[in-house]
Design a protein around this nucleic acid. Structure first.
Length: 191
DNA sequence: GCTAGGCAGGAACCCCTCCTCCCCT
């Protein structure tokens, strides 16, 4: 089974009014979380990147102004994904709605894809104890963030891939059976 | 120097509805 750990950076929280500005992903085979094929692109937004987003992500407007527009980036990402199962942290509530809404906004047909929210791994391992945000997960697993830029999609997927690998291993020795429920998401349909 | 949208999960309660809080940028 192939998995695609991915992360989005956006101009804000609302899928209906904000734009995706960066997509990054690492495609891995279950059990081989440290080596994978990478995807990364900036995405040209329809409005200026707010200063607080630049402060948070390190992504400035000039970096995305000449980037591919959303439809091109969404199709490229979907082609890269292929038949992989997608994984994102809090993706059920954030990344997946953003991808779906972006496709809708640009009139792109979508296709269903298997999807797992990595927060489910954390809930299953640690239940109600503490938080399940990426920072809490990283801290509990003792992952090093040295040399990794948090809130840059490339850095976050790197950390998330390591985190999912560790959590999976702690939940089951079986690298083939996903220990949490696999749901459904949507990506742009590819011709 | 700062904001915002909405789901999942839990509580209370009897099967839905409401509420609160998390978590993403």
């Amino acid at each position: 089974m192939t998995y695609l750990i991915f992360d989005l950076e956006t101009t804000g929280l609302s899928p209906s009014s904000e734009d995706i500005i960066q997509i990054a992903g690492i495609k891995v085979r279950a059990g081989q979380w440290h080596q994978g094929e990478r995807f990364e692109t900036f995405v040209r937004p329809t409005k200026r990147v707010p200063s607080f987003i630049t402060g948070l992500t390190g992504i400035a407007h000039h970096q995305v102004a000449g980037a591919p527009e959303a439809p091109e980036a969404l199709r490229a990402f979907s082609e890269f994904a292929g038949d992989a199962t997608l994984i994102a942290h809090n993706g059920q509530r954030f990344d997946m709605p953003f991808l779906r809404q972006s496709c809708l906004r640009y009139g792109l047909p979508v296709r269903p894809v298997p999807f797992v929210d990595s927060m489910a791994f954390s809930r299953k391992l640690w239940g109600g104890r503490g938080g399940h945000g990426l920072d809490a997960v990283i801290s509990r697993l003792g992952l090093s963030v040295e040399g990794i830029r948090r809130h840059d999609a490339r850095g976050d997927v790197e950390l998330l891939a390591q985190a999912v690998g560790k959590m999976w291993h702690q939940l089951t020795p079986d690298v083939l059976a996903c220990p949490v429920t696999v749901g459904e998401g949507a990506l742009a349909a590819v011709a």
